[in-house]
Computed example of a mutant assay.
Amino acid sequence: MNSEFTIAVHSLVYLASRPDRMATSDAIARNVNTHPSRIRKVMSLLRKQGYIATKEGIGGGYLLECLPENATLADIYRATSIGSIKPNWCSGDKQGNCSIASQMAAVMDEIFSDTEKKMLQHLEEMTVRDVLERVRIAHR
């Protein structure tokens, strides 16, 4: 899994904690503890999916555009990271000289695909609002 998903969830939860207030990429980056350029990259993906709105220039930044209770973590994963659970690897024997090696890549692809489907089912049950509530409870 790549870090874009975690950055996206963190950023959306941060914006949800500040309803009706803009946040700059610098402010979000400080909160997420990453570089503002990474924030801008992830926020671009989220904007294309309608999760956030942007305002450029002085006083600009990012504003939550969706209802936190409607934004599932599965949707955010699909927007930022679908397919990333499968590692980049090269395994197998394409010539078919070994019965194990010639089938390993296909079998592992199926395993990773099944794993991602099950993970998405789990993430479908959680929203940005749920994560914000968990953070608030943990902070008490």
Results as ranks from 00 to 15, higher is better:
K41E: 15
D75C: 06
I111G: 00
S44L: 06
T115W: 00
E69V: 01
I111H: 05
P87V: 02
S44C: 03
D109G: 02
E116M: 01
H10Y: 10
G83P: 03
P36H: 11
G96T: 12
A79C: 13
R78G: 01
P68M: 07
R134C: 06
Q49P: 00
W89A: 11
S3P: 01
M1Y: 03
M22K: 15
L67K: 11
A53K: 10
R18H: 15
L15P: 04
G50H: 07
V9D: 02
S81K: 03
D20F: 13
S102F: 11
T72G: 05
D20R: 12
T24G: 12
C98F: 09
A101L: 15
I137R: 15
L132I: 02
D93G: 04
V13G: 05
H35E: 15
S113F: 02
M43A: 06
A105R: 00
V128A: 06
S91F: 11
M43D: 01
T34K: 11
A105D: 09
A29Q: 10
G50L: 07
Q121E: 12
G60H: 13
R38T: 09
R140S: 14
I39C: 02
S113M: 01
D114P: 00
N88P: 04
R30D: 15
S102Y: 10
D20H: 13
I28R: 00
N97L: 12
E116V: 00
A27N: 06
M22P: 04
V107Q: 10
N88A: 14
P36G: 10
N31S: 14
N31K: 10
P19A: 14
E125H: 04
R18G: 07
I52E: 03
M108K: 04
E56D: 14
R78C: 05
I100H: 00
S37L: 14
R78W: 01
E69L: 04
A105M: 06
A71G: 08
W89M: 14
E69M: 05
L132T: 03
I137M: 14
V107T: 13
G59N: 11
A53C: 03
L63A: 13
D26G: 09
Y77N: 03
C98Y: 08
H122G: 04
L64K: 06
E110S: 05
Y77P: 01
S102D: 05
T54G: 08
G61N: 11
R129I: 06
T127I: 05
A106R: 03
T80K: 03
A101M: 12
L63F: 05
K117C: 05
I28E: 03
W89E: 05
R140L: 14
M126N: 06
I58W: 12
T72D: 10
Y14E: 15
N33Y: 02
A23I: 08
A8G: 06
K41V: 00
Q121D: 11
K55S: 09
I7P: 00
V131K: 07
S91W: 09
G59I: 09
T80G: 05
N70T: 13
R30E: 15
Q95A: 14
A138N: 12
G57V: 14
V42N: 06
T6Y: 05
L123I: 07
A29Y: 08
S113I: 01
N33G: 09
K41S: 12
